[in-house]
């Protein structure tokens, strides 16, 4: 459903991604593992058109998207939980959720979508009129996921959603990602937390120094020497 073919990006003279190719299977959970500074966030930003590739192609549902602008790309059905969550600090929970449905703005089932988010994250319902800036990190993480779901995405990009969260919240978040995937959304999970990630992912890719260093099913990745050595400390 999403495919990168030989994508390279530069930041000034520095090559951030070097000929990255990967393909996400529809309806599955794919993961992108890699150490800090490997280029994981750059990869997400490249898919979203914030960073433009200097070579290669990106296809979403068979259509080239690497020349489109960010708002056009997400309008095709891509939801994002960006690195650092990036909720709108001076908007309330409800206003943030509304922004998640910005592309359609007033779909007939807007209230139903919001209620679904509230049933997934009851905490958000309690805080519906609270400004996002005044909420805890965990609540902001829920809000960021809820906001992404409001657009009914076909593909959900999660960029290090577990960062800074207590283990119990990470557990919840990953369970939630599985539930979201079971309801039909393809999930692309970018993580440093390899052990947890490989428990829920179907397949994945390993990114090192801007290059794909390995790929395969979750079981294959878990068994690979690089992953075992670097991430699972087995």
């Amino acid at each position: 459903m999403l495919e990168l073919r030989g994508v390279s990006t530069r930041y000034g003279p520095i090559t951030m991604l070097r000929s990255v190719s990967l393909s996400l299977a529809e309806g599955r959970i794919a993961c992108l593992l890699g150490p800090n500074g490997a280029g994981k966030t750059t990869l997400i930003r490249t898919i979203l058109g914030i960073v433009k590739p200097v070579e290669g192609e990106i296809l979403f549902e068979g259509r080239r998207i690497d020349r489109l602008r960010t708002h056009e790309i997400v309008a095709l059905g891509i939801g994002v939980v960006p690195e650092g969550r990036r909720v709108f600090p001076r908007m309330t929970v409800e206003e943030n959720l509304r922004m998640g449905a910005f592309v359609e703005w007033a779909p007939a089932d807007l209230a139903a979508r919001r209620d679904r988010v509230f049933s997934l994250f009851p905490r958000l319902a309690e805080r519906r009129r609270q400004k996002a800036a005044t909420m805890s990190g965990g609540e902001q993480a829920m809000l960021a996921v809820g906001r992404a779901l409001m657009g009914r995405p076909k593909l959900l990009l999660l960029d290090e959603p577990s960062l800074g969260l207590a283990p119990v919240l990470v557990e919840q978040l990953f369970t939630m990602a599985q539930a979201i995937n079971r309801s039909g959304t393809t999930v692309f999970l970018v993580e440093q937390n390899a052990r947890k990630t490989l428990e829920i992912a179907h397949h994945g890719f390993l990114l090192q120094k801007g290059e794909i260093a390995g790929s395969g099913s979750a079981a294959e990745l878990a068994a690979s020497p690089i992953v075992r050595h670097a991430y699972l400390r087995a």
């Binding site: 979203l48 914030i50 602008r69 960010t70 309008a75 960006p82 709108f88 908007m91 703005w105």
Partner: peptide, 24 residues
């Protein structure tokens, strides 16, 4: 309005606004 929401979103975080589909 939708345009007003876009203005507020851009004022708070232009990049996140674009990720929500706002035409900057």
């Amino acid at each position: 309005t939708r345009m007003g929401a876009a203005i507020r979103a851009v004022a708070q975080d232009p990049e996140a606004a674009q990720m929500m589909g706002v035409n900057l």
